[in-house]
């Protein structure tokens, strides 16, 4: 454990808390892509099946359970809560997210640390997480104004994997750890946010409302 890793996980947790606060206090999921949230449920379920096969960890296990529970809760709110579901921008959430799943599954089948059920699913979850933000970014681009909580949510979600990159650099030098699959996927994942980061920081510096061109 190092400071980058701890900060990364806390940032990830904070992003989810921000989203839940937005949904619960404003009773609205406007600006949030259900397709991205669906993909996160799939990501967490396929990655954390190891809850059943791996010894419990005082640090990892609670995080895994919280990520699973919160992602399912968010999707539940957006689909079934009688007030929240009416605020969902269904017509703008146009990204064909099913087309992300098959390529990630094929990639995981061929590129994995070990050809076992758990390891292929783990690889699938790493690849799918890298691209799961795409429907959300497409939805934000079609939004004329983005509320602060939504902007902060996406920023924290992007910052979390960027902090993992620092953690991986640290571990490479301090612990000789080499893990190509999450490194490359994490790099792609962070790169997808580059545009968003640019406009987020610009709007923050100019004290303006966030808007993507």
């Amino acid at each position: 454990m190092n400071a980058f890793r701890l900060l990364a996980d806390l940032t990830h947790l904070l992003s989810i808390i921000i989203l839940l606060v937005k949904i619960r206090t404003t009773k609205s999921c406007a600006g949030i892509s259900l397709k991205t949230q669906d993909l996160y449920v799939l990501v967490f379920i396929s990655r954390y099946l190891d809850l059943f096969t791996r010894p419990l960890s005082l640090y990892n296990t609670p995080f895994k359970l919280v990520f699973l529970a919160t992602s399912i809760t968010i999707v539940y709110y957006m689909r079934y809560h009688k007030v929240v579901k009416q605020t969902y921008n269904k017509d703008s959430d146009t990204f064909k997210h099913y087309f992300l799943i098959l390529p990630c599954a094929v990639l995981a089948f061929f590129i994995n640390p070990k050809f076992t059920f758990i390891e292929v699913l783990w690889s699938f979850s790493i690849y799918l997480e890298a691209v799961a933000i795409l429907p959300q970014l497409v939805l934000l681009q079609s939004s004329s104004n983005i509320d602060n909580l939504t902007g902060n949510y996406v920023f924290m979600l992007g910052a979390y994997r960027a902090l993992y990159l620092l953690n991986w650099i640290y571990r490479f030098f301090a612990e000789d750890v080499v893990r190509w699959i999450p490194w490359i996927a994490g790099l792609v994942q962070t790169a997808l946010y580059a545009d968003f980061f640019y406009y987020y920081i610009k709007s923050w510096r100019n004290n303006e409302r966030l808007k993507l061109p």
């Binding site: 996980d9 995080f63 640390p113 893990r179």
Partner: peptide, 10 residues
């Protein structure tokens, strides 16, 4: 190695 990798990250 034939051991599955140890995924110690989230």
């Amino acid at each position: 190695s034939s051991q599955p990798p140890n995924h110690d990250e989230l």
